[in-house]
Amino acid sequence: MDSIPILKIGSALLVTIQVDMHDQLATQLQEDLTTRIVEHHARGVLIDISALEIVDSFIGRMLANIASVSRLLDADTVVVGMRPEVAITLVELGLGLPGVKTALNAERGLALIGGVARDEAAAGDGDDD
């Protein structure tokens, strides 16, 4: 069966969604990500949806779920690259995804995750890895 590849960059996981996802694939991704966060002690998850032409309530729910689960596992989720027309449609649909962090592109998203990690490291007792 198809699955969406998950890349590891530093302490973050990167997922680029490039296909018109059917529901099973979305559910699969959610499970895979949860496993990988624990496996790699990931501090952040970056989901690039710039190739997605639509986000409906099912995919919206998947994104919100990934964010909630990763928060419990102490990792930040940032959704990046949402297209303007997708954002307009989601808002009209009533899905503002309040618990999900967003950034304009992957670079900004990584900086956001890195920034949080650095802040926490700085706040720790000289534990500056």
């Binding site: 959704v79 949402m82 997708v86 954002a87 808002v91 503002g96 967003t102 304009l104 998203g109």
Partner: peptide, 12 residues
């Protein structure tokens, strides 16, 4: 508020 939410979804 819709405009604000849509901008936020894009990361602004």
């Amino acid at each position: 508020l819709k405009t604000v939410s849509a901008a936020r979804l894009m990361g602004a």
